[in-house]
Every structure is written in structure tokens, then in C-alpha cells.
């Protein structure tokens, strides 16, 4: 049992627990599961700047910030106490592709490659693209789309909302473009 808890969990354990979050939040307080809204509440609290979009009663939405605080705590718990240091076992095609980006085998001991997400990479071109531009597009894009993978892809699709299916298809399309076209091009450029 301890061994199972410390190993990476299979999709058929993780997915259903994730799905149960939706009815759980509805039962606790009529809350519709979505995480990207928390980014908006942070803006509304910290820098509303007289913009209409941030001028609302964010105190009603505090539950969302409590939830993401829990997400951070949960990640701390899982990483510190429920981890056996087993490397991430990706498929062979992925492994070969990433080796071409200079990602070495020992980097798989962590969930993110140090050669891209290490602190020393923040102020390099890798940091500019993978952290800054990537983060900006996640924030701008999810708010423009009205939700992210939780609000649209899980809650929205589970409630059979057509706009959420459209949004999810576009999330996937963007991800394929970046992975198949943009990232290989970036590494070719970094290498020069």
C-alpha cells in the first residue's frame, strides 16, 4: 500500500478522483469547478486599475483562492511525503524527441527538465519562451476562452456544453502546434 502511494498513480485512479471534484464542489457550496478564474481574482484584488473586467465583488469568489491554496499545499504534500523518486517513464518516441533537445536521462528524476525549468534558466531565451511567453499565453488565452482544462474540458464537457467542446478542441490544436512545430524550431534556434 505504501509502495502504491509512493509510486506514480495510473490514469484510472487519477482521472475518476479528478472527476469527483466536480460534484464535490457543487455539493459543498454550489461552486463550478474552474481554476483559471483564480488568476482573475488575483488581478481584481491586487491591481484592478479601474478596469471593468476586474471591478466585481471578488470576496464572493474567495472559495476559488482557498481551493488553489489547497492545490499548492497538496503538491507540497505529494512531493515531500508521497514520492519514491521514480523517474518519469515517457514513451520511446517522446524520449527520443526530447533527447534531440538535449534533455538527458537523469533529468527524468524530476517532473520537469532542469535544463528548461531550472532556476538558472529563468533569464535565458528558454526562460523567455517556456516560462514568460508560455505563462502569458496561458493566462490571456484561458480568460479569453472563458475557462481552462478544468472549467471547460472537465466541468463544461461533463455538463455537455457545446462551447466547452469547441474550446477543448482549440486547446488541443494549440498544444499540437507548439509541440510538433514551435518547440523543435525553438531548439534548433537555441542550438545555433
Amino acid at each position: 500500500m505504501v509502495e502504491f502511494i509512493k509510486s506514480p498513480w495510473p490514469w484510472y485512479v487519477v482521472g475518476p478522483i479528478m472527476g469527483l471534484t466536480v460534484p464535490l464542489l457543487l455539493l459543498i457550496g454550489n461552486k463550478h469547478f474552474g481554476i483559471s478564474s483564480s488568476l482573475r481574482h488575483v488581478c481584481a484584488i491586487v491591481l484592478p486599475a479601474n478596469l471593468k473586467f476586474f471591478n466585481y465583488n471578488w470576496r464572493r469568489e474567495v472559495w476559488n483562492l482557498i481551493f488553489v491554496l489547497g492545490v499548492i499545499l497538496g503538491a507540497v504534500i505529494a512531493t515531500q511525503f508521497m514520492n519514491n523518486g521514480q523517474p518519469v517513464a515517457v514513451g520511446a518516441t517522446t524520449h527520443a524527441q526530447l533527447a534531440g533537445y538535449g534533455i538527458t536521462d537523469n533529468e527524468y528524476a524530476q517532473l520537469l527538465p532542469a535544463s528548461i525549468f531550472g532556476i538558472s534558466q529563468i533569464f535565458t531565451w528558454k526562460g523567455v519562451f517556456f516560462l514568460m511567453i508560455g505563462g502569458f499565453m496561458v493566462g490571456f488565452g484561458t480568460r479569453y476562452a472563458g475557462g481552462c482544462t478544468t472549467g471547460h474540458s472537465i466541468t463544461g464537457m461533463a455538463n455537455l456544453q457545446l462551447p466547452s467542446f469547441i474550446a477543448t478542441l482549440c486547446f488541443m490544436a494549440g498544444g499540437f502546434i507548439t509541440t510538433v512545430v514551435v518547440i523543435p524550431y525553438l531548439f534548433e534556434w537555441f542550438g545555433k
Binding site: S36, G141, T142, Y144, G175, T178
Partner: peptide, 26 residues
Amino acid sequence: IGGTMFGLGWALTGACPGPLYAQFGS
């Protein structure tokens, strides 16, 4: 438009908003 933009960023950061918080916590 926003959905595609998010997807482009998702594959760069390796994270949608929930995992962004969790990557930090991790």
C-alpha cells in the same frame, strides 16, 4: 482564439492553470 492561444502556451509551460500552482508547490 483564446482557446488556441492557451493551447500554444500549455505545451510550452507544460501546465494549465491548476498545474501552474502545483508545479510551484512541487
